[in-house]
Write a protein that binds this DNA or RNA. Structure first.
Lengths: 197, 197, 197, 197
DNA sequence: AATGAATGAGTGTTCATTCAT
DNA sequence: TATGAATGAACACTCATTCAT
């Protein structure tokens, strides 16, 4: 799938991203994509198997790079669990802010055969959060009977905030509020500890 | 748009709901809808202006009835803020569980002209939650600097849990976890108060 | 075909006439006709076999009544051939002027099965003119090697004048010019006769 | 709209001409046109905006070329006014005889937006005749108080003759009869002149 | 007789995909 | 490799006609 001029490939992806983010799948015409990418319509089929493949590649590429980046950052140095969580939340928000269409892309329903790939990526992202929480529990910094589900909540909340939050919500505010909610919910209740200590 | 046999209208909506929930907009054929509803294809156009109108009506009707139901329940009797919040969360989950396709419908991107209507409904739902939190703050049962955003978080989290949560997640578990996370995050920190007292 | 309330029948015809005159056959909807006639759509099918039948009846009725009227007028009293011709031309023009859509109707192509009926009526009309000319020739008031074709010319010319003539052309002007052209062309050349006498 | 292989465009027009001449607009299916032209149905939409556009192009092209040809022939050399008139009539008849469907096409009612274009062409054709008559009057070869209307008459008569004339009418007979009628009607009455000389 | 809701065959048009150049 | 003209399967939507009331 990765033939020839990778430059041209990303031209196409860039053009497609804007269009797919702006309208539903069936309203995006490959003619437009080709025009916006300044290439011939046939050329798309050299780099992508089909319209669907183009669409899925778009999302797959974006999420993959996000996951890789987060994994790198997490591995870099030691942090408290809350710091790690903040790192992930900030990564999600900044990623979405930098590629304002990414989340819009995810609104769309995917053709069934692709759901597998996408949910795999989503699961990887959730797993990243879940593992941070699990480590937090192991370190007795956090408590959470359902870390996986909490991962879904965090992902969904950031998405909800980005897509539907107040107009003038800044990235930092979104990060802060997410941390305030989930940070406090996950925090091992201090008073109890204090009581026992 | 509410002509004639409202029974037939429901038949169509019911058939459409199953189909739109199962596949993306452009993969649903009106022939199928007509067949599933046991009516002629042309009949759809008596009750709905277009395929798009059918689709939007589906979502609009569902969300409206949810909002109305929640408003009624909230008004019925006095409750603590947490009980009110639980009422809403339970309402969301039960609604989604009863109409398993509703949330799937909302995944799809809508044609732009409809976004307005939909985001209005979403805002109403969020406002319901926000007002519960505000009242909680006024009653000194809760604290939250961004009740509106928290509303978005709750909505998004329930949705995320329904759509992507663990296979065997029960409705009650989802309600409990949502309340655990958001309930504890919003609770006016007891230990601090105790400290001061 | 002539059932029941003949009043209702002509309501339908009247409504249909305006519509068929205003747009091509396939752009006229029976819904419109029914609405304009203030009757139910199904009622049309009580008075007419089909849309096509309605359309053809419209034209047939109009032309038949024109032919009958002209025949009556011609038979009423003795006239010179030119007076007879003028009678017909005036009849054509006045008929068209009184039912301004009639000629527009005739612009439209008819479904083949109807062509027979229509061309029969046209031929009757042409025959009327042809016979006037023939009688004129017999009376040595006219000369014309092709009276039938001349009949077609006259019919066509009046139609052309009505449909495409100058905006402010009056009925009388059209009659006069038609008579000027065809009257002089058909007139037995006076000078020659005089020469020989 | 004049893209690509103009050969293919002609193929389509040729196929369409036969079909539109044989039946009313709404009975001609684009599937037939494509089949007759030996091209894919979609190809029609590369060369024409719509069924309507195809139809109008057909007529527009034909009439334009007729007008151009007549203008050229008239300019070629000096002629008496009657010769010029005969040239036009012969041109009309031969044109129609060579493209036996052209006049049939014109029977149909056009969608309103196109009427403008068509009546423009008709007016050009009429203007051609009118100017010949006017020149004839200036040269004292002809007399006619309404040259424009006479132009309409001639056009209409030729059309009437072609469409509805006797079965076995030849092109030459039609030309001759048209000239006999209109030639004699327009001729500056010789006897009067002779009287005065 | 009159109605108008229901029907579904029929068709213009689109657009992802192909392939000759 | 790159192209864009050609394709034709696919589909939303229409509307003449029917028929239960």
């Amino acid at each position: 799938m990765q033939k020839l001029d990778p430059n041209k490939r990303s031209e196409i992806l860039k053009a497609a991203e804007r269009l797919f983010a702006a309208k539903p799948f069936h309203e995006v015409k490959l003619d437009e994509v080709a025009a916006k990418a300044h290439i011939g319509k046939g050329t798309i089929y050299i780099y992508f198997k089909s319209k669907e493949d183009l669409y899925v590649s778009l999302i797959r590429d974006g999420m993959s790079s996000l996951i890789v980046r987060l994994q790198e950052q997490l591995g870099r140095k030691r942090r408290t669990s809350e710091e790690e969580l903040r790192l992930i939340v900030a990564g999600l928000v900044q990623f979405a802010a930098a590629r304002p269409n990414m989340y819009h892309l995810l609104r769309t329903v995917l053709p069934k055969p692709c759901e597998g790939q996408m949910s795999l990526l989503r699961r990887q992202l959730v797993a990243l959060i879940r593992d941070v929480i699990r480590r937090g529990i192991a370190r007795r910094e956090m408590q959470d009977p359902q870390p996986e589900l909490t991962g879904q909540f965090i992902l969904a909340s950031v998405r909800g905030g980005m897509l539907f939050g107040p107009e003038k919500l800044t990235a930092d505010e979104l990060i802060e509020h997410t941390m305030k909610i989930f940070g406090s919910a996950l925090k091992r209740a201090a008073c109890h500890k204090e009581k026992h200590s």
